[in-house]
Design a protein around this nucleic acid. Structure first.
Length: 470
RNA sequence: GCCGGUGUAGUUCAAUGGCAGAACAGAGGACUCAUAAGCCUCAAACAAUGGUCCGAUUCCAUUCACCGGCACCA
């Protein structure tokens, strides 16, 4: 049996789950559900180390361990909230196994002579508790605190990124490793402009909330070295007691999902780390766009935030899944507003799918259709495999439109008055069509698909699936 | 500044070197199984300028507008 690995990025737990991540994990969920006949490992989790989280916890007046615990739960709740697959694996970067894995990866990179110590001199802002870059300063002062930063020296561990330029370019030659194509070109550009080694640790006395660097108790790992490791620690690497790492990472097809701002991290740094440790590279990274609202990035101060919770509350689990999966552009940014969501909901779900189910089943029930042919012969569609979920959903809605038109053209409701058998035949045919639609709907709206199938089996009209909004 | 992208009906998107497709919203119509839903009909667009070409929305250049990236921020 073929094996397939899919993972989202791990969201940083310094805020509530936002719509962009909800979208990412929904896409992953659809892809995972669509891989029938394959063994699928579907991963997500939370990235819980680092300065920002430590600060956020402090600000909340909470112990950092409790703080991350609380947030991790919120993210785990998404599973229920968004109707995600049962077999979703959730990895936390503060879990013991993960910490060991991160340290082992470090050790392997070090053994391969890719990690070295270097004295680093920089301008440190006490207020920010970090070193400032050029653009963080105005007139030599911290742009946030308006104070002059101190010149500080710190010893950090660095990763030999530059060493991997050629190997990365080679990796990037394969057109499949990054979707969409222009992001791959972006990645190639980054490398061609030249890479610099990057620091992967921080002094513990400045930041204690991180994974201890093996063999150096004065330093902790910088978050991303730790966080990126989660893609394999979740599989049980390095011990691999259950054989998942071998089965899914080494022998399977690996697919990572990430936002468009992640190219450097996922397709370059992480890949270089894998190369250094002698581990197979990711087969494919799929970068999606961002979701904005009203022409702007969502932000609390603008008051234009639409959260996954808001959506589920208003449109239900499957309604939310439908709206995001059908209307968010796979790779470009998408602008959504409540008005638009309402329109999309009414058009696609109330007037479209919901109404069709209602009219077909009303007739089936009333006319006394006896059984429904529930074969799903030739309804194959491989758009999801090509990572084009929008196309897949659009295809389903074309079928819905076809069935609506068929009812109009064949007029079973009229024929019933003169010839019951003819009408019953037509409606029974319509039921088969509806069953096919329900079948295609499974990865997109699993619960609704189940209700429709069930209604067809019992030939009983279900509760109003999607009440109109206006 | 450098690199890349985008600009198509009111809105969101699609396709194409040779009549520009759709969905939603809008107008009208015949019907009634249905959630005043569905079906039919109608109206509606290639940012601007120049070039290549028999012919450009599509290729090239310029302008205007918008967006993204340019690393220690995850």
């Amino acid at each position: 049996m073929k094996s397939f690995y899919i993972t989202t990025t791990l969201p940083y737990v310094n805020a509530e789950p936002h719509i962009g991540f909800a979208y990412e994990i929904l896409v992953a969920d659809v892809i995972a559900r669509n891989r029938v006949g394959e063994e699928v490992f579907f991963n997500t989790g939370t990235d819980e180390h680092g300065q920002k989280i430590f600060n956020a916890a402090e600000k909340a007046g909470e112990k950092v361990e409790l703080y991350v615990e609380r947030y991790a739960k919120e993210f785990e709740n998404l599973k229920n909230m968004l109707g995600l697959s049962d077999n979703l694996k959730f990895i936390r970067t503060t879990s013991e196994d993960h910490i060991k894995a991160a340290q082992e990866l470090w050790a392997r990179c070090k053994k391969n002579d890719d990690i070295y110590e270097k004295e680093f001199e920089g301008l440190y802002c006490v207020g920010c508790e970090r070193f400032l870059a050029e653009r963080d300063m105005i007139d030599g002062k911290c742009s946030i605190h308006q104070t002059e930063p101190q010149l500080l020296k710190e010893r950090n561990w660095f990763f030999k990124f530059k060493k991997y330029e050629e190997k990365l370019l080679n990796y990037l030659k394969n057109p499949d490793v990054i979707i969409p194509e222009w992001r791959r070109e972006e990645a190639i550009n980054f490398v061609q402009e030249g890479l610099e080694d990057f620091s992967i640790s921080r002094e513990k006395r400045r930041l204690s909330w991180g994974v201890p660097v093996p063999g150096d108790d004065t330093q902790v790992m910088y978050v991303w070295f730790d966080a990126l490791t989660s893609y394999i620690s979740t599989l049980g690497w390095p011990e691999d007691k259950d054989g998942n790492f071998k089965k899914f990472w080494e022998e399977g097809h690996t697919l990572q999902l990430a936002g468009k701002d992640q190219v450097r991290f996922q397709s370059l740094m992480w890949q270089a780390m894998l190369m250094s440790a002698g581990i197979k590279n990711t087969n494919q990274v799929f970068y999606h766009g961002f979701i904005n609202s009203g022409g702007h990035k969502m932000s609390k101060s603008l008051g234009n935030v639409i959260s996954p919770q808001d959506m589920v509350k208003r449109y239900g689990v499957d309604g939310t899944r439908y709206l995001l999966l059908r209307h968010v552009h796979p790779t470009d940014d998408t602008d959504i507003t409540l008005e638009r969501l309402d329109e999309w909901y009414d058009a696609g779900l109330a007037n479209g799918l919901g109404n069709l189910v209602s009219r077909v089943l009303t007739m089936a029930d009333k006319y006394g259709v006896s059984t429904v042919n529930s074969s799903v012969g030739n309804v194959e569609n491989n758009s999801i495999k090509k990572l084009d979920i929008q196309d897949y959903v659009n295809h389903i809605w074309e079928l819905i439109q076809k069935v609506d038109k068929k009812i109009q053209d064949e007029e079973p409701y009229k024929k019933y008055k003169t010839d019951h058998d003819v009408a019953i035949n037509i409606v029974s045919d319509l039921c088969t069509n509806l069953f096919e639609i329900a079948h295609l709907l499974v990865p997109i709206m699993p619960k609704t698909a189940g209700i429709i199938k069930n209604s067809l089996e019992n030939l009983k009209k279900p509760e109003n699936l999607f009440p109109r909004k206006d």
